[in-house]
Nucleic acid binder design. Structure first.
Lengths: 194, 194
DNA sequence: GTCTATATCTCGATAGAC
DNA sequence: GTCTATCGAGATATAGAC
């Protein structure tokens, strides 16, 4: 492994650590030392890879976006759009313990970034959510349902809402209850298969 | 006005300012100086009324709780539980501009407080949401609908979800679209009146 | 490229005059 | 009760040795 590869590996370790720690502790309560420790990189060295803390936040957001893209690409392999959406809901529900402790990574990040007067990064958090909305709308459209954008809004909004309540009340079972309802809702839409 | 009354008035000014500024800027990005300035109280004097910053956060939460109680008390005067719930949704939608800029006061506060390792205040944010859930469930129960707790979860969750998306995408129209859907949903539940 | 040491700044909290 | 002055902790960011 040459120098370039090692360097980019440290960068990737920092990015992964940032995504994890910022989700758990939030942006404002996380120090560069926290991220450096988690990535096993000396604090002062962080500045060689990221000029500011905001650049680390940006990298964390890109990491979440990448995870989400990976998930939707996997779901795209399912032949039926309805099954893709139901699998998405099931993926959410399977993350209920994490949601109870820290909420949705993108959602909680978006909330925090929107509190900043300097609106440099909140648009980027919004973009991640926007891309999920677009993918979801595409599935509804493929199903031939009317107003696919509204249906996508309803589904993603339900996800963010149940994540927030699960987190605020520290009750993962909320994800089970709402998830089950969403699955039945998806089944009820449009023409029945059987 | 005697000294006691003036003192408690300053306390109330600080509480009101805390509720407003903490909603707009979040807990971590808000300094005591911000709140003191907004309340027109000298910074050092804050400590006469609140021993710590956390006590101010707690006071802000109590303020939001009081506003919510005031709203539900007003809605309780409507004879039909369904009309109460629909009026609640309309109250939410009417706050769409504020939601686009700062999100739901209680919801965003809960998200931020849940990020703290020291879990002193996150339970209190959860309690505010819990009380709203309970009131909502009582309305569904009075309508004679099955699983009123699940229905309450769905409604409050939808509110938190649409608030978060409205805020993240800075688009108040999201509240109109989802609000309209919720009103139709409430109408579709149970026996039709006409 | 890597890391230590430290400058600089901001904030929460306190001491004490009035 | 009110307010000024300031302490001390802890954060980001930088300077410079290696």
């Amino acid at each position: 492994m040459d120098r370039r590869a090692r360097a980019s590996q440290k960068r990737r370790r920092l990015t992964a650590a940032a995504a994890r720690v910022l989700h758990e502790q939030g942006v404002e309560r996380t120090t560069l030392a926290d991220i450096a420790r988690e990535a096993d990189v000396p604090v002062g060295n962080v500045y060689y890879y990221f000029k500011t803390k905001d650049e680390l936040v940006q990298a964390a957001l890109a990491e979440h976006q990448a995870h989400l893209d990976e998930l939707t690409r996997a779901l795209d392999r399912l032949p039926d759009p309805r099954d893709r959406l139901k699998a998405l809901v099931e993926a959410w529900v399977s993350q209920r313990e994490t949601a109870a402790r820290h909420g949705c990574p993108t959602g909680t990040l978006a909330v925090e970034l929107d509190k900043r007067a300097d609106g440099t990064l909140d648009a980027e958090a919004g973009a991640v959510i926007r891309r999920l909305l677009d993918w979801t709308a595409a599935q509804f459209r493929e199903l031939g349902l009317p107003a696919p954008d509204d249906l996508a809004l309803t589904l993603v909004s339900a996800y963010q809402g149940m994540s927030l309540l699960t987190n605020a009340l520290r009750d993962p079972d909320i994800m089970n209850r709402e998830g089950y309802r969403l699955l039945r809702w998806l089944d009820s839409l449009g023409p029945k298969d059987e």
